[in-house]
Design a protein around this nucleic acid. Structure first.
Lengths: 343, 343
DNA sequence: GTGAAAGCGCTAACAT
DNA sequence: ATGTTAGCGCTTTCAC
């Protein structure tokens, strides 16, 4: 009643021992052949008293917390929040509880959060890391099963799940090239994040594959402002690109703003494509062709791999589990690309 | 080294007692006048050994977990994810850790999550509740300081922080009326959530205040599909509205889709306004006038109120803390409303 | 089929 | 300025 019902209370009320009560409440009755009657008495009393187990005690005793950590660069980014949403739901369904940390795109913060998480007896960790691999090297010698999502570092014995950024980017640029574009500019996000790196490589390699010499790369962060500024810059070049590849939808919005201000028509005067395929792309002034990542699939796979590791007691196995899993994206074609071959 | 360094290990290595080590590591050295030398020795050893405190033990012993629960209807909704992001960052900065739960807009799930959270010795809870008040009545007799965000139920001794939905809606409708609109339709979300209820009331009262008889209310959930379907329905009425009020941006996207399909021009043939002011509204085919909620402010205030309660040991005070705090929104005027007075 | 007792890592009252 | 000790709520040997 007074909010402090423990198994001891129940033991006293029912005149059974702590042990018996504990066993009943943990579903190990069968294993210890506790009589149906006893079970019922204990269960009834627990319900009547509104017993709520004390996780801290369980965790301390068993050294297993049923807690999974989740660290993301920023929840205000839809991509990450959908991952968080999916991960959270799946894990809760499995009886885990999720400790969420928003590293705010700040590596110092990320480090602090990782440390805080380590004190929580986590049974697992799902991380969308920032650019600093050392933050993850401190991770308790890989004692906590960890899965990287979207971004990763080579050389960790963790699973990583992400879109095949390189391939996606390559295909997207090829899509432009196939429509006659020869001068394609790219506005990137943060150079330190590996998904960005791969996208840029895909961009570069697609150009090379078609022997295109025009190469323009700008941008330093995945923000609307950057997209805006970089587009302003881009428009001042005498040799203007015929297409812009925005490496995220946030960047895209900035690009569109700058183009609108300069009264440059999309796609008549310049074509635009992006990564992310946000739901509003269909409703923009000109619907924008974009790469759709299989976000939910990625998150689901990450959780599955994590649970697998958690349930796999044989740690030896885990030692050699470095594995990067790349999922294909889909190119959603809309009206923002002009076919230059028809001119 | 082996990942199981406790204060006992440090005590042995340094030949100090558990107490001393504990005190040094908890920053209570001053209070107990532990010598600088001792402090340094202990601190050095802790660092050398890579000591990580065991939170479960701390929590068990002190019955205070430094863990705050956060429960949201769905992280994939930008409004909620921004709240989550802000809350998480602020709380982490204060040394708290955040247990996140996505109730998936499902009251059964919400109940389960609330129960799971209760087992975690939470020191506080921030909740964006669904429609079921009973889920919160079970909340440990209000022993855990709780703050409702965005939505709330009357009769709880919790603080609630939200936008003044009624007023916002009233103003928005008045804005339409001022521009000569007399037939305004409203497409709502989930009737069970109080923010929706208030918005609908604001809509109704604004009409009444101007003696307008036209009243059209449709919709059952905050989704694009609903917005789409309801608009289809709406368009079949012989007496068509001159303006549509979409109670969320998700609904809005559906509305726009239906209008586009029907080739009805915005704002020439019909005006549209919405709630949420998502960042992409500026870039839509027709930028849409919308109500911007002070999301970050709301989240910040909620955290402040929570921390206040947590630090306020005098529970008596908390007993009478029911208080609903309403923040003003801003009306962001864009091109989606036609001024009928000029015709 | 059930119970007694030890102990997980930590803190705090009570020493000195 | 530092140490001893009890105990938070729970699980788990070991015992009968």
């Amino acid at each position: 009643m007074d909010g402090n019902v423990t198994i001891k209370t129940i033991a006293q009320k029912t005149n059974f021992s702590l042990t018996t009560v504990s066993r009943v409440l943990n579903g190990t009755s069968e294993k210890y052949r506790i009589s149906r009657v006893t079970q019922q008495i204990v269960l009834d009393e627990a319900k009547k008293l509104g017993y709520i187990p004390n996780m801290a005690a369980k965790t301390l005793r068993s050294n297993k917390s049923h807690t999974v950590g989740l660290i993301v660069p920023s929840l205000s980014n839809p991509f990450f929040s959908i991952v968080a949403s999916t991960v959270s739901k799946m894990l809760h369904a499995q009886g885990y509880v999720v400790l969420m940390s928003d590293s705010d795109n700040n590596e110092k913060e990320e480090k602090k959060m990782l440390q805080a998480l380590q004190a929580q007896n986590l049974v697992g960790l799902i991380a969308i890391p920032l650019g600093e691999r050392r933050n993850y090297e401190l991770l308790n010698q890989g004692i906590i099963p960890t899965v990287f999502v979207d971004r990763f570092f080579p050389g960790f014995n963790f699973y990583s799940v992400s879109t095949d950024h390189y391939k996606s980017s390559f295909q997207l640029v090829q899509y432009l090239i196939n429509r006659g574009h020869q001068k394609i500019a790219c506005i990137q996000g943060d150079e330190k994040v590996i998904s960005n790196t791969y996208r840029v490589q895909g961009y570069r390699d697609a150009l090379r594959a078609s022997d295109l010499k025009y190469y323009y790369l700008g941008g330093v962060s995945f923000t609307e402002e950057e997209g805006y500024l970089e587009t302003k810059l881009l428009l001042q070049k005498k040799d203007r690109a015929t297409a812009i590849l925005a490496l995220s939808d946030t960047i895209l919005l900035g690009v569109l703003k700058a183009l609108k201000e300069a009264k440059i028509a999309v796609p008549e005067e310049i074509s635009v494509v992006s990564f992310d395929n946000s739901s509003y792309l269909d409703y923009l002034e000109v619907p924008v062709t974009s790469i759709a990542q299989p976000i939910t699939q990625i998150a689901q796979l990450a959780v599955k791999l994590l649970l697998e590791q958690i349930n796999d007691k044989s740690k030896s196995k885990r030692e050699e589990s470095e594995q990067v899993i790349l999922l294909d994206s889909s190119l959603i074609s809309r009206a923002s690309v002009l076919d230059l071959r028809n001119r």
